[in-house]
């Protein structure tokens, strides 16, 4: 029994002079929902296409289910892929789309019929209603389901999804997110999901990799990545964060706000301190407390988002306390373990 469904070891790929991905090391566990999150152009789709075998790396090793398939063509890898544009076959109906991979594998007709119906049911499409439908007679959500069923029908070692929800409207997207997660729980196949949308990655993944400019910034569970971002990029890309430039001075920091206590510091002299807005409390019950003037109050339903000017540094906080107005003088603060020190 192998532990990892997909292993990338030192994988690099160049397009001309442009380094799409460099020295990627990722190990994706069997049966997990793994996301690759990053802004466009960060190389996340390149990684997916490398795993699929649609492109081959310049250097490095790619293993699927423990076997080296760095240069194996896609049709010998037994992987499923859902493309961004879904790439459904317009000349085939729903049934034949899902049956495509099974026909290539020359399964007996009865077997094909049974499997296609089974998979259509798993993705919540009634085979009796949808089998004979043409692709252009389906809604966006239904097309997603067919694409997923088609990719899963070949029972792949791993299912690759390239931003498949991008084209859907917000409501349908949220629905499909929970649906996808449910499907993954049912079939227990390893899912590798590429997206630039942090909420998709946080909601669905067991673990995720955050990418930037062709490199992996951090791999971890959604909680780890959110609570303990290892780089400033990760902190900035996922959620919101206040960044306060500061200098290390013995065991504490000096900044324009004044002296700041921190739980640990790294070796650097110049640093940036990151604090999430929701970690900042209004009032003086915290280790670090500062006085400032409220510049902006935005009501977000249930809670307020305020911008406080402390010695010229603007700090965003989220609070549920009512009665705050612009121009009010208030105290805000946070405990030292809730702030993260990054290299400047």
């Amino acid at each position: 029994m192998v532990e990892f469904a997909v292993e990338l070891d030192g994988v690099s790929k160049k397009y001309g002079n442009f380094e799409a991905v460099s020295n990627i090391k990722i190990s994706i566990r069997r049966g997990e929902f793994f996301s690759i999150l990053g802004p466009s152009g960060s190389g996340k789709t390149t990684i997916l296409r490398l795993i699929a075998g649609l492109i081959f790396p310049d250097s490095g090793l790619i293993k699927i289910m423990g076997q080296n398939c760095t240069f194996i063509p896609p049709y010998k890898r037994n992987i499923g892929m859902v493309f961004q544009d879904l790439a459904l076959f317009p000349h085939l109906n729903v049934f034949e789309n899902v049956a495509y991979g099974l026909r290539i594998r020359k399964l007996p007709e009865i077997e094909i019929k049974r499997k296609v119906c089974e998979w259509l049911e798993i993705v919540n499409l009634d085979p009796k209603i949808f089998s004979r439908r043409k692709i252009n007679q389906l809604s966006g959500g239904q097309q997603q389901r067919v694409a997923i069923a088609r990719a899963l029908a070949i029972e792949p070692s791993v299912l690759l999804l390239d931003e498949p929800l991008g084209s859907l409207d917000l409501k349908l997207r949220q629905h499909m997110m929970s649906e996808l997660k449910k499907i993954q729980r049912t079939v227990k196949t390893t899912f590798v999901y590429v997206t630039h949308d942090q909420s998709e990655a946080l909601v669905m993944s067991d673990r995720l990799a955050v990418m930037n400019q062709g490199k992996v910034e951090q791999v971890g569970s959604p909680i780890e990545v959110y609570e303990k971002p290892q780089t400033r990029f990760v902190a900035e890309f996922i959620g919101e964060m206040n960044f306060i430039p500061a200098e290390v001075c013995e065991d504490h920091l000096l900044s324009e706000l004044g002296k700041i206590k921190v739980s640990k510091i790294n070796g650097a002299k110049k640093v940036v301190l990151g604090v999430r807005p929701e970690k900042i409390k209004v009032g003086n019950k915290a280790e670090n407390v500062f006085r400032g003037k409220i510049e902006e109050v935005t009501y977000l339903g249930g809670f307020l988002k305020i911008k406080v000017n402390v010695n010229g540094v603007k700090i965003k906080c989220i609070t549920s306390s009512n009665g705050l107005r612009e121009e009010d003088e208030i105290e805000i603060g946070w405990n030292s373990e809730e702030a993260i020190v990054f290299e400047a």
């Binding site: 896609p74 317009p90 495509y100 991979g101 290539i104």
Partner: peptide, 28 residues
């Protein structure tokens, strides 16, 4: 009118280039 993904998806589903040409490209 079709992106190359339509042929790539066929490759991932186990069809080689020749099968893909006759089962996907030609019909489209």
């Amino acid at each position: 009118g079709y992106e190359k993904s339509i042929e790539e998806v066929s490759l991932t589903l186990g069809a080689n280039e020749v099968q893909t040409f006759f089962r996907v490209t030609i019909p489209i």
